[in-house]
Computed example of a mutant assay.
Amino acid sequence: MTTTPSLPETDEPTARQQAVLDAVLSLMVEEGDQLTMTAVARRASCSKETLYKWFGDRDGLLTATVRWQAARVRAGRYDRPTLDIATLRDSLKGFAATWLTVISSPTSIALNRLAIGHAASRKSNLGGIVLANGRFAIGERLRPVLEAGREAGLLAFEDSETAFRSFFGLVGRDVQIRLLLGDTLTLSRDEIERDAARATDQFLTLYGGRVPPRGSEETTRS
């Protein structure tokens, strides 16, 4: 029976907890499916009792680890009432760049490979944990940005989930599947920035609103 994790989803891990979660990620890269609470405690120099107190059990620890990894993917800050196209583009581009950086990291590759294996064998709930706290959580994180863009007339779409999936596809292309299948593809910081900018511009071309620029004739007549 799975116990409830002691670290709520809305809480920021402490520095000590972050070190534990980073230890989990490094062990996944090194040992894959052999991850145990004992190994994590040893690597993080803490007791198993502390791990159980903080995270509840192994699934709780894995959930917190996935959240910690996914938390690196964020949209930029913006002021909703005064959102303009330049700020929207910067926010989407920042989101795209951080997501590409995360999915191309050895830790994410190891985590996702492990999750896929567990989902196929039903060995654990890791696949569901990664899906809920990775892909779905990231989608919810970007939803307010997309909806703010629609409210400002900068984006035009009926369903934010469909719009997000389009953006997700433009950003990721075939990068993640190639990495998961063992491609030695490497992305430099400059390449990630260029890819993020290109995907953002493609998305804005597909979903850009039809609001006349401020100060234009159509604006002044209304």
Rank of each mutant, 00 (worst) to 15 (best):
M1N: 10
T2A: 10
P8D: 14
E12C: 08
L21E: 05
D22H: 13
V24M: 13
S26Q: 15
M28T: 11
M28Y: 04
V29H: 04
G32D: 02
D33I: 03
T36H: 10
M37K: 15
M37D: 07
T38G: 09
A44Q: 08
Y52V: 01
G56V: 04
D57H: 08
D59F: 12
G60D: 10
R67G: 06
A71M: 03
Y78W: 02
Y78N: 08
T82C: 07
T82V: 03
D84T: 01
A86F: 11
A86D: 13
T87C: 03
R89V: 00
D90T: 05
A97Y: 03
T98A: 10
T98H: 12
L100K: 06
I103E: 08
S105H: 14
A110W: 07
N112G: 14
I116T: 00
L126R: 09
L126M: 10
G134H: 03
R135V: 12
R135M: 08
F136E: 14
A137P: 00
R141N: 04
R143Q: 03
P144N: 07
L146C: 01
E151W: 11
G153T: 06
L154A: 09
L155W: 03
L155T: 03
F157C: 06
D159T: 00
S160M: 07
T162L: 08
A163K: 07
A163W: 09
V171D: 10
Q176E: 13
L185N: 09
E191M: 06
I192S: 00
R194K: 15
A196H: 05
A196R: 08
Q202S: 09
G215C: 05
T220M: 03
S222D: 04
